[in-house]
């Protein structure tokens, strides 16, 4: 296999392996922001979800219960954020940072006894059965959570476009005045959108600890939850675009290690920055005067 093929296979594998947590956190953030609230605490929900999922999987022996536990832990953190943000004069950006620190802190504190043991992992789907090449087979060992994430993206897209619930979330997010005129319970809708969004982030965390890299330790996330918040801007608050953004990030993240294996060994710090450079480039390319923040929910503001 030539060097180019190697890199392409590695990037494909990276897409499928690394993108899932980005996908879940960005979908969760997308849902929350559509209701008019920012939740920077999703990094905390990701880490806490990873820890709880690992712990539950270890204690019960069932990784799927772990995924549920991760979602529940993330959701609880989201409801806390949502609840606190309903209080008067609470800034959701500042609160989100507090929630992020609280979530990671709790995960590190309660996660101590689970650093050592090995928890049962989620099975993966061997889509590469048709190939004889081991690296293709390995690259196409895809976690079911990846497909769950894709399904969730389409589900969210449908909810926003085609359901009464989605319309209500969008109204609350676009204009609180209009929502008030319609008699919608603004704070309650935002509370549940925040809780559900963080539950999705918690599932992303469960992927980290139960699928890939499949281990709990304190350096597990290294800021992926925060990058996913940026991905939502990049994806223009569109759940389907979140899929593309997450895949692109996964592929860009696989570039650094794979280039080193084929002998391109200079400047690996530069290649590790590829995902962030990609974000910058795409933002610059897609931003034009007048449509800079097209798709941004009207109520979303950092000044509130």
């Amino acid at each position: 296999m030539s060097a180019i093929e190697t890199i392409l296979v590695a990037m494909l594998a990276g897409c499928l392996r690394v993108s899932t947590p980005f996908l879940f956190v960005s979908l969760g953030e997308c849902l929350t922001e559509k209701s008019g609230r920012i939740n920077l605490g999703n990094e905390g929900a990701l880490v806490l979800g990873a820890m709880v999922a690992y712990a539950v999987s270890y204690q019960t022996g069932n990784p799927w219960l772990g995924v549920l536990g991760g979602a529940a832990a993330g959701g609880a953190l989201g409801l806390l954020h949502g609840g606190l943000c309903t209080l008067a004069r609470v800034n959701d950006v500042a609160m989100g940072i507090a929630i992020m620190l609280a979530g990671t802190g709790m995960a590190f504190f309660f996660g101590k006894p689970y650093v050592q043991p090995s928890a049962p992992q989620l099975p993966s789907i061997p889509l590469g059965f048709w190939s004889d090449v081991p690296r293709i087979r390995s690259a196409l060992n895809v976690s079911p959570l990846f497909f769950l994430g894709i399904a969730a993206a389409f589900g969210l897209y449908y909810i926003f476009r085609g359901t009464r619930m989605g319309l209500r979330i969008r109204i609350v997010g676009d204009s609180a005045d209009a929502a008030r005129a319609l008699g919608l319970p603004i704070e309650r809708i935002r509370l549940f959108a925040t809780g559900a969004g963080s539950a999705l982030a918690g599932i992303g965390g469960a992927f980290l600890s139960l699928s890939y890299p499949g281990s709990w330790n304190e350096g597990l996330s290294s800021g992926q939850g925060l990058m996913a918040v940026a991905l939502v801007v990049f994806a223009r608050w569109n759940p389907l675009a979140c899929i593309g953004a997450a895949l692109l990030f996964g592929a860009a993240g696989a570039l650094g290690p794979s280039l080193q294996t084929v002998g391109i060994t200079w400047g690996y710090y530069l290649f590790y920055a590829a995902p962030y450079v990609a974000t910058l480039v795409m933002l610059i390319v897609t931003v034009a005067p007048g449509r800079a923040l097209a798709g941004m929910p009207g109520e979303l503001s950092i000044g509130r």
Partner: peptide
């Protein structure tokens, strides 16, 4: 001996990616 530098002491996802890349090679 093929070597991959991950750039920092504790980078779980990069270490997993590096290991997979090396096995693929």
């Amino acid at each position: 001996t093929r070597v991959i530098f991950t750039g920092d002491w504790s980078m779980a996802v990069k270490e997993a990616e590096a290991t997979n890349s090396l096995v693929d090679q």
